[in-house]
Design a protein around this nucleic acid. Structure first.
Ligand code: ZN
Length: 703
DNA sequence: CGAATTTGACCCGCGC
DNA sequence: GCGCGGGTCAAATTCG
């Protein structure tokens, strides 16, 4: 891909190079003009955004996005140079003007940041991710979410299931699969340190697996004198809605959690379970895990309130709750791929400001690990209605796979699927450079959520419900919900799938070809929304793509309708595999995968450079928008396909007629069929996710 | 020249 | 009824 080369210049692959590209990030930085350190900026920016979100969702404005062209840029994470002044030359011309405009509008200079490596681990470290989205830790593929216990449950959903009284959550295990998570004290200690705050209480959470599928969790909590934490061990066995095997997730009632909140922090969580299985390295993992968890630092203090094992993963999944009083935000941290991939799922958005750095504790803080992070945020906590989304990280060139440069892989993208209507969002980040094989890992996930309630009882976790594991069902729900929602645009009553992808590239490949037919600014998001139609004749599927106002890195793609055809061969390129390194700015040892997908669709290519025109600012809306490269990015290639072939993980099949099945190479990772909760599944491509989701959907109207 | 994108205008639903 | 906002259309533009 010569393209890359082209991109490169802009892309700021070089660490030092100023980033010419107008990445949204830059904008962000500009916003916060003060600092230049990326991370700092981000954080701040995020905060601001977050606040905005919480308070006034619509005001998130700061982000500019896009890196479209620059997709290549990803690499530059480390360096994040902010170019204050200059618009990127490359795309340039127009952009410069845009920049100026932007500045004019905003009143301040919009500097460009190299978005490229956005979300490097460091970013995550402190900054909160205010986005309502959850981040899924590395190693997890969005798909995982689908399949894995983790995703599936939104805190919201989960909570309901938990029996409040007991505080214990029975995970249902349809299977006995649940493994118990043990946390080591070490971890606890880790946490302590990490937290720096008072952590005195220990919780031990023991899921007890009883055969039968009913799991009992026992929670043991010790509280520090100082802390008021109180966890009580409780046993609960629930019969009914138990999450399927997948759900190893320890569940606590919100109350429990809240209670925990009160506590400064729960250090450790031990699972005492009866049948618990400990992976050999489990303890270690835990330690790491705990510590590792920290990798996902987001600037908030977290209390670990649970942990469980993840199928297919050596590492346990840790559950954390924001220690801020009344804050319901939770997050889950899991690692995959030998720890290279860290999945962080946030549930909810913080309504409160981040604690000061010193005080920050929590799992997430450490950055080192996190190769891949999946963040899932549940808006619930926030009160913000955010959609639930999963984000997966994509490697590769822009969505299509632009980003890779040479060996260093920089592009990262996350893709997430979520129903818009859902309130949570998940983000998957991969930081790992190593994923060598891992690279392959694609992370894709689909969320379906139903909205509302946050933790309320109403809806059982997706996973759980239905018969099970069907992703379909989940998806369907989503659709249904979506459709129900008024939000769905008039014209389409078709199911809408929302995928959030973290990537510098705006366009996410999903295996289909799209033609852009419009763009505009949408209220509440400084980033323009681009509208695409499926180019396949007879197919009315449309999608719109926009950068999340909360997280520049994340690209939210909403699909309306169902394809009546298979995905074009394409497969472009992009693999979604997550590459952690990106974040870190480390050169990634990319994997073949990335390369695999390669052939980028024309469009993609174009995207990077093509249109010299000015930035696309939404014509209609009056938002201030920052300049964005995005345009291009967005415009880009419509092809999307993720390669998953290489993934180690097999994707469960989803047989849904009407929907394109995932192609391996091209990028369809997931075979159609219902997704089984495979451990293996963990990694999937965003695209695959999309497809899966799609598959799950009822056959769309065929043309 | 064809294909794809850009972008302002138009349409429509919704809330006030 | 009016304005707002989102979605779509289509002429103009750009690029290969
Ligand atoms: Zn189609």
């Amino acid at each position: 891909m010569s393209e890359f080369n082209d991109l490169v210049p802009n892309g700021d692959w070089l660490p030092t190079s100023p980033s010419p590209s107008p990445s949204s990030r830059a904008l962000i930085s500009s916003l916060r003009a003060d600092t230049f350190g990326w991370p700092a900026h981000l954080e701040e920016a995020n905060e601001s955004t977050c606040k905005n979100l919480v308070v006034e969702p619509q005001e998130h404005v700061n982000w500019s996005n896009s890196v479209g062209n620059d997709g290549a840029q990803t690499g530059a994470m480390t360096n994040q140079t902010v170019n204050v002044s200059a618009p990127s030359k490359q795309n340039t011309s127009s952009r410069g003007g845009l920049m100026e405009r932007m500045a004019a509008r905003t009143g301040f200079n919009v500097s460009r940041l190299n978005t490229d490596g956005l979300r490097p681990s460091f970013v995550s470290q402190n900054q909160e991710i205010k986005s309502p989205y959850m981040s899924i830790a590395a190693g997890l593929s969005p798909s995982i979410l689908l399949y894995s216990p983790v995703m599936l449950y939104n805190s919201l959903t989960i909570l309901p299931q938990v029996s409040p009284p007991t505080g214990l959550l029975p995970c249902a295990s349809g299977n006995e699969s649940r493994s118990v998570m043990l946390t080591t004290e070490a971890a606890d200690k880790m946490n302590e340190t990490a937290f720096g705050t008072n952590i005195s209480s220990y919780l031990s959470f023991n899921p007890i697996m009883e055969t039968g599928g009913v799991n009992e969790f026992q929670i043991e909590g010790s509280v520090d004198p100082n802390n008021s934490l109180q966890l009580h061990s409780m046993e609960a066995t629930q019969n009914e809605q138990i999450c399927n095997e997948k759900t190893d997730i320890p569940m606590f009632t919100e109350e429990d959690v809240r209670g925990s909140d009160k506590n400064p922090e729960v250090r450790a969580f031990n699972a005492v379970g009866g049948s618990t299985e400990h992976p050999p390295s489990l303890e270690k993992q835990q330690n790491e895990g705990a510590a590792g968890d920290t990798s996902v630092e987001d600037g908030h203090n977290w209390i670990k309130y649970g942990e469980n094992q993840v199928k297919g993963s050596e590492y346990p999944r840790s559950f954390y709750k924001c220690t801020h009083p009344n804050c319901l935000v939770k997050k889950e941290i899991a690692r995959y791929h030998q720890g290279h991939v860290t999945e962080v799922i946030y549930n909810g958005a913080h309504k409160h400001p981040k604690p000061q750095p010193n005080q920050i504790s929590g799992p997430g803080s450490s950055s080192s690990f996190g190769d891949l992070q999946l963040d899932y945020v549940d808006p619930t906590g926030t009160g913000v209605n955010s959609d639930l989304a999963l984000e997966t990280v994509q490697q590769g060139p822009t969505a299509g796979g632009l980003k890779r440069k040479n060996d260093n892989l920089e592009a990262i993208s996350f893709a997430a699927l979520h129903s818009e209507y859902c309130r949570g969002a998940a983000t998957l980040h991969s930081n790992d450079a190593q994923l060598g094989s891992a690279d392959d890992v694609d992370i894709a996930s689909i969320f379906s959520t139903e909205g509302d309630d946050h933790g309320t009882r109403g809806s059982p976790p997706l996973d759980c419900d239905d018969g099970g594991d069907d992703p379909e069902s989940k998806i369907r729900k989503i659709e249904a919900d979506a459709t129900d929602t008024s939000s769905v645009s008039r014209s389409t009553k078709q199911p809408r799938i929302v995928v959030e992808t973290i990537s510098e590239v705006d366009v996410i490949e999903d295996g289909y070809r799209w033609r852009k037919y419009g763009q505009k600014l949408v209220k509440g998001n400084p980033n323009p929304r681009s509208y695409y139609k499926c180019t396949t004749s007879g197919c009315s599927v449309r999608k719109h793509v926009e950068r999340s106002p909360f997280d520049q890195m994340s690209v939210i793609t909403s699909y309306d309708g169902k394809h009546n055809h298979d995905a074009p061969e394409a497969r472009s390129s992009i693999q979604v595999s997550s590459i952690a390194s990106i974040y870190r700015s480390n050169p990634i040892t990319t994997n073949a995968q990335d390369q695999v997908g390669r052939p980028e669709p024309k469009q993609l290519q174009k995207t990077s450079r093509r249109y010299g025109r000015g930035p696309p600012f939404g014509s209609t809306s009056g938002f201030n928008s920052f300049e964005t490269n995005q345009q291009q990015g967005l415009t880009g290639p419509s092809m999307t396909g993720f390669n998953s072939d290489q993934h180690q993980f097999s994707v469960p099949a989803y047989p849904y007629p009407g929907w394109p099945q995932p192609v391996n190479d091209a990028g369809f990772v997931l075979p159609e069929g219902e997704p089984m909760p495979n451990p293996n599944m963990n990694y999937s491509n965003a695209s695959s996710t999309y497809q899966q989701t799609m598959n799950g959907l009822p056959p769309g109207p065929q043309m």
